[in-house]
């Protein structure tokens, strides 16, 4: 059990190390990398000497450029380990970490809310559909679920936008006043724990949250339906029925726990997709989250900000993977047992 988790932990650290190294290679060692290009540009455009241009680049990228490459690499690694990504190029003097800290909560809020909603609704609907396989509405719901799971999330976003913000349905105005919904909250509210602010934040986040929800909903319904169906046919569920246990008890304690197993693994696998999708969705709704910030950093060639956001994104995903592994062990006692058997002989 402990050995299993330690192995997973090492894997998590290794992944982050791979990404860090990849970024270092891209920024520092590729031919015509941004550092070399910056030095060249300073020399050509402003006509300054190589030493001075290197000095400028050093302070800009916070790297000791005259050190050998492996020393630069080690200091880069230690910076990353301390969450020190230097300062943004586009807004000099601002720490990359403070930009991330300002943006990340909004993305976590919308993605988290969307995921939670889709998870709750999807699992309930999926389990229900597995029980009611003979009803007429089951193919309809399953068809809709497979439609949702197939089409890209940003197309769902466009559909939602058209439905809520563009079509007027003969009322003369749209369901949501879409033109005033840019950003995370309106100008006139004061941030804090007051009703006006919370409502405003929810309204601004509504379409992104709905998009995340619908883009994941189909997968949960299909998965839960599939795994519940196969669990329903097992002996222990039949026995539980014969024993005359209440149906809700069977559904939660006997079926639910086992049907959840494949879903937990899938949950971790999908997180990368959702965070990747947030780039396009935040751009669509002009929502000031980490995805939009990464896009702006890329368009403005703000390398420190880019590497910071990308590393934080990857770390978040890897961390969630790790948590999912732990949850898997908790849910499935067989893993613990298997390890013990193997250790003992």
């Amino acid at each position: 059990m402990v050995a299993y988790l330690v192995k997973k932990l090492l894997k998590m650290l290794f992944t982050i190390w791979v990404v860090t190294t990849l970024i270092f290679v891209l920024i520092r060692m590729m031919p015509s990398n941004p550092v070399d290009r910056y030095i060249e540009e300073q020399m050509v455009v402003y006509g300054i000497g190589y030493e001075e241009a290197t000095l400028r680049a050093q302070s800009l990228f916070s790297m000791e450029l005259d050190e050998p490459i492996w020393k630069q690499y080690l200091s880069f690694l230690s910076d990353v380990a301390n969450f020190d990504f230097g300062q943004s190029l586009l807004s000099p003097g601002v720490d990359v970490m403070s930009i991330i800290a300002a943006r990340l909560p909004w993305t976590l809020f919308t993605v988290g809310m969307g995921l939670l909603l889709s998870f709750i609704i999807g699992i309930s609907v999926g389990a229900l559909m597995a029980m009611k396989r003979d009803r007429w509405y089951e193919p309809v719901v399953s068809g809709f679920a497979s439609f949702l799971s197939a089409i890209p999330d940003f197309l769902i976003a466009i559909f939602l936008l058209l439905i809520f913000g563009v079509f007027t349905y003969g009322m003369g105005h749209t369901i949501i006043p879409i033109t005033s919904l840019r950003g995370n909250y309106s100008m006139f509210v004061t941030p804090g724990w007051n009703a006006g602010f919370i409502l405003d934040v929810l309204l601004h986040g509504l379409l992104p949250i709905l998009t995340y929800m619908f883009s994941q909903l189909g997968i949960w319904i299909l998965l839960m339906k599939g795994s519940t169906t196969s669990t329903l046919n097992t002996d222990y569920v039949q026995i539980a029925k014969v024993r005359g246990l209440r149906q809700s008890t069977i559904l939660v304690n006997y079926v639910g726990r086992n049907a959840m197993l494949p879903i937990v693994t899938e949950f971790a696998m999908r997180l990368g997709f959702i965070i990747g999708g947030s780039l396009i969705i935040e751009q669509l709704f002009v929502y000031q989250g980490i995805g939009l910030e990464l896009l702006n950093a890329t368009n403005g060639r703000d390398y420190p900000l880019m590497q910071g956001i990308f590393l934080i994104m990857t770390s978040a995903i890897v961390l969630c993977n790790f948590l999912a592994e732990i949850l898997y062990v908790v849910l499935d006692p067989r893993i613990k047992l298997k390890k013990k058997v193997r250790e003992n002989g």
């Binding site: 970024i23 891209l26 990747g276 999708g277 896009l295 880019m306 994104m313 990857t314 995903i317």
Partner: peptide
């Protein structure tokens, strides 16, 4: 390891290089 690196953000970052 490769699967847990988010692919779409990686593509976006690549497009800067």
């Amino acid at each position: 390891v490769w699967l847990s690196i988010p692919r779409f953000p990686l593509l976006v970052v690549f497009s800067a290089f």
